[in-house]
Design a protein around this nucleic acid. Sequence first.
DNA 1: GTAAATTAGTGATAAAAGCCACAAATTATC
DNA 2: GATAATTTGTGGCTTTTATCACTAATTTAC
Lengths: 220, 220
Amino acid sequence: MVVQKVASHMPTDIPDIVIGRLPIYLRALTQLLNAGRTVTSSRELGEYLGISSAQIRKDLSHFGGFGKQGTGYDVAVLRDKLQQILHVDRQWPMAIVGAGDLGRALAHYRGFESRGFRVAAVFDNDERKVGQSLADTELVIEPMRRFKEVVQANGIEIAMLAVPAEHAQSVTDQLVDACIRAILNYAPINIIVPSNVYVQYIDPVIELQHMTFYLGHQPK
Amino acid sequence: MVVQKVASHMPTDIPDIVIGRLPIYLRALTQLLNAGRTVTSSRELGEYLGISSAQIRKDLSHFGGFGKQGTGYDVAVLRDKLQQILHVDRQWPMAIVGAGDLGRALAHYRGFESRGFRVAAVFDNDERKVGQSLADTELVIEPMRRFKEVVQANGIEIAMLAVPAEHAQSVTDQLVDACIRAILNYAPINIIVPSNVYVQYIDPVIELQHMTFYLGHQPK
DNA sequence: GTAAATTAGTGATAAAAGCCACAAATTATC
DNA sequence: GATAATTTGTGGCTTTTATCACTAATTTAC
């Protein structure tokens, strides 16, 4: 019932910038829970995250009232609500495309399972890599020609793109063709997708350059 | 002279959100340059990046007029300007802290050099890892007790943090103690630093959860 | 049991960010 | 060489985002 209520809120009328903060809140709540905390407040959460308490309250209020005046928020309850809102109260199977250093590091990453995701398949077109199994996993590197088939068989809708920049667009086209709906792009390049496909970018150099602007002019 | 002009613009009066877009522009310009283009326009750049042309023009106008009416922007000139503004017209030596799968993948990443960065040292506290050299690099894994010394000897001001979440804060304290001024944090946890230290976060799960909000409710 | 303290949720306000549209400069066309 | 077409840089406006500050509910202190 509560799930229905949450589910009834359509994405359209909630600012994307608000949505972008929800995973941050969720991560902090999980941390609090692991530390044994049972209640928290917008003030505490805000001080910890460097966000104003009013903003946290207003963000959450888009989805209903989860707190209690005078007390604050039940950490476990709020975490559950956020997991429902973000649809990570289940595990999303994902494909990794590109089995270089980065793709392999992602395949071995132990942090997905507890947060709503699971690496279901790894792809690469290098014939020397195809067929290799990845240590400590049940994964075997598949060739890209099997992509569509494996994606459909496993109900995969999310792909992490970890191929060199020069192949990123053509591989993206293959992902789109296989009905991938969300792409986490690690290639340092903009990719073009249809408007119904979501893309997020991770490029460490972008973040580093953002900081070097402020680091100033005198190199050591 | 032009460098002086750019340098004279102090960060304080330019919105951070503008600064955050400059690396994106720089990346796109480098791509255009590699494709042999010599001139571009705010319209072309905007269509490619999914950003309005007016925004690009206004962002750039914070730093001076780099374009030419009727023509647009000289790609090489604008790229050079952005490199100066972002202070990546040099190479920043960086430390990687944590030599797990991720730290090693970062150490092997070939994409830093051309964009203003260089991995100068890798650290880990696991005695089994210390002393190991990293294939295809001149890097040897150093113990954390040598951190301050190596950082000072190499003029390192930037660290990439790739340790497990449970150690992230205590390691951060060591970074701060060694006068690290910018941290790219890969640990899925908020870290507390003094206000003169810059932090950027990379957590793939945050980006994935942002997308699953929109992916909706019916898992395959 | 009462008063003081705490905290959520929210309408109103303030601040920030983004976009429009135009003048001025340049280039292309014929 | 005149006219049409481009494109920048920007003032002003609109939209979005964030904060303020208040009410109502609850808890704590004594």
